[in-house]
């Protein structure tokens, strides 16, 4: 069988990346066009699918044995059980929670309203009242618009860039929204005085996380993967509370 009709470009790797969901829409479209004219790459594409299907269907996916799970749970999870929700954890314990403990089920929480606000804000571009990557611009902007001052931590070191902020209304209550971005995903962070009651979950394809920050309820909504959102929360919580840091 002859090879790729355009061997000077790495189509084989692009076809693979497409199969793995790693391409953006434009790149994926280019692959679609290429496989129409390249029998080699079209065949490769079919083989990738067939192989992945077989792997997932035929290879047993055993996780930890019951013995190991019990041993690990006894060792790591049990002492933390009394801590209940993520709220109020120290940084270390919160990280432990992120790594070891699943999120507790969401209770009564305005999750629906948060997701709706997030989706609304995404149309057409992300709705931002004060576009700035500088917390010294964003933080004062809320002064006089709200009766509280939301924390605006700098999370660049963790890979999350501040894009700006806006006002929103959740359950007839004005809230501060901070917008952070990473890898093309926007994270809306809703902040208002109160207590976060529900640690998080997934709603209509969006992931939610909630935590408390010195009298503020903080809720993050994003289409970013849950692990990354958890990382965002951990980065937020890791920022020192001293003046000027947030």
């Amino acid at each position: 069988m002859t090879g790729c009709v355009e061997p000077e470009r790495a189509w084989e790797l692009l076809v693979q990346a497409d199969h793995d969901g790693e391409l953006d829409a434009a790149e994926a479209a280019a692959v679609v066009r290429h496989v129409e004219i390249c029998p080699h790459c079209a065949g490769l594409q079919r083989q990738f699918s067939a192989l992945s299907n077989r792997l997932r269907a035929e290879v047993p996916m055993h996780g930890a044995s019951e013995v190991l799970r019990r041993r690990m749970t006894a060792r790591f999870a049990a002492p933390r059980r009394r801590m209940g929700v993520i709220a109020g954890f120290g940084a270390g314990a919160a990280i432990a929670a992120g790594l070891l403990l699943t999120l507790l089920p969401a209770g009564a929480d305005p999750a629906e309203g948060l997701v709706a606000a997030h989706v609304r804000a995404l149309q057409p571009g992300h709705l931002i009242d004060v576009p700035s990557s500088d917390k010294h611009t964003v933080k004062p902007w809320f002064d006089g618009r709200l009766d509280f001052a939301p924390p605006v931590p700098d999370l660049v070191a963790a890979g999350f860039t501040l894009v700006g902020g806006r006002l929103d209304v959740i359950g007839a209550r004005p809230v501060a929204v901070l917008v952070y971005r990473r890898g093309g995903h926007d994270i809306d962070v809703f902040v208002w005085p109160g207590e976060a009651s529900a640690p998080g979950g997934t709603l209509r394809g969006y992931n939610l996380l909630a935590w408390n920050d010195h009298g503020m309820a903080v809720r993050a909504v994003s289409d970013i993967e849950p692990a990354a959102l958890r990382g965002f929360m951990l980065a937020w919580q890791a920022v020192p509370e001293d003046a000027g840091q947030r």
Partner: peptide
Amino acid sequence: MALPHLDAATRLARW
């Protein structure tokens, strides 16, 4: 309560 990454850790170690 669970250890959500325990299965993944075990699979990788086993492989």
